[in-house]
Design a protein around this nucleic acid. Sequence first.
RNA 1: GGUGAUGUAGCCAAGUGGUAAGGCAGCGGUCUGCAAAACCGCCAUCGCGGGUUCGACUCUCGUCAUCACCUCCA
Length: 469
Amino acid sequence: MIHVYNTLTHQKEIFKSIQPNLITMYVCGPTIYNYIHIGNARSAIAFDTIRRYFEFRGYEVNYVSNFTDVDDKIINRAHEEGVSEATITEKYAQAFENDTLPLNIKPATVRSKATEVIPDIISFVSELIAKGYAYEADGDVYFRARQFKGYGILAHQDLNELEAGASGRLDPEELAKKEDALDFAVWKSENRPGVISWDSPWGNGRPGWHIECSVMAQKYLGNTIDVHGGGIDLAFPHHTNEIAQSEARTGQTFVHYWLHNGFVNINDEKMSKSLGNFITLHDMLERYDDPMTIRYLLSTTQYRRPINYSEDTLTQARVELDRIRTAYRNLHFRMKDSKDGRNEAVESDINEYKKQFIAAMDDDFNTQNALAAIFELIALANTYSEAAIIQRDTAMLLLETMTALMQVFGIETLMPVEQLTVEQQSLLEQRVIARQNKDFSESDRIRDILKLQDIIVEDTAQGQRWHKA
RNA sequence: GGUGAUGUAGCCAAGUGGUAAGGCAGCGGUCUGCAAAACCGCCAUCGCGGGUUCGACUCUCGUCAUCACCUCCA
């Protein structure tokens, strides 16, 4: 049974989907005015991993996410560069696809842009007005936050404190239009020439930020969904407002389980532009040659915990992942001389570790404990690789189990296809002969040559094996 | 000021009312012609100070420190 920590109730709850084998899941996507940063990547990976685990447990997952492609940052950026908003958003939407591919993030079932659901947004807003939850003010439409019973519960904010805390940070012009400082825009008037806008019952304008997620979730998943995810910073105000809008409109519970991922720190500091430690995924992929290590680091930390990103943590992730890969590769090598049959004792251990893995992941996706189970499996594989005799069925089961469990973390290629040149092939053959003749100086010479070409040669009881460095 | 987190070995990181998983690094062995890989062993008393308890790292009170959120930042 899966348990998840629900931000709404502040506790772990038994997970039960609305439909028996289907999970509806909405995850807030990025605003596409730049390359996504490592924090966006963490969020995408965290929820991709959660999705993969649901799938591993036999659920079908209907995963919907958005691109925010209309907002101030985009408009400003377009203005600065003298291009249209669409030029900016198309570029970075494409970059998102390109950059998340090497991280093995599954595409959403539906990924929609805000601008693709404008008619839905307009009718959603109209309904809110009709129900008395929203009002028009000089071309803007605001939601009456206080009118929605339970506003602020998600983020555990007291309404009066909110107002006090926000004082001095509110746009006075906007404040003047609002009935209450807590009210938030669901539609904003926009009459500047050359700036993207749509015709609406309230004049030219564009959607407020929060409305797109409510609309898309409802449009693609229904009035009540199983899981809604995003960064912890979105709990307030973004998700708080989503709940208010959605539930005001339908009178039904919007989301059963609110899941929020923790932040990424850079060298123990918050990542921010002002600190100059802002890292985009795009840059990382260019600088670092092993994207799976990035995925490993980002997906094996429990999703609610902060991740400290640094050269050290990345290096450590690389070493850990390599240990898993090496075990896989070495066991795979042993398959060559495996015998028919199976080893009951080893298979029983395999199943035991698999159970441990499941128990860990069932506990709010406790990836660290799940990883501990994987390392038990690795030790088992290493020991079994060294055994005098290994049986084909058991070795296969071990390899398949390692693959299946790592797949939950999104690490799918434990053994990359590695090609040798004809010369390298020939050198390996010469080395076998040299060793047969006990000509160790020659065999060492060849080993050194290959090493310079990043081919690592190892001698085992079953003969010579090699891999790329 | 309000709200919510976190503080466990050199590093990453689990966990629990009964004397601390796992990984990395380190040290010592085994195996190997040498090496590599691997295996075995060693390596912490849980921020600080009270309290409750037969017993706390785990409960409670206080304290210190770090961090996040409090109107558009994942």
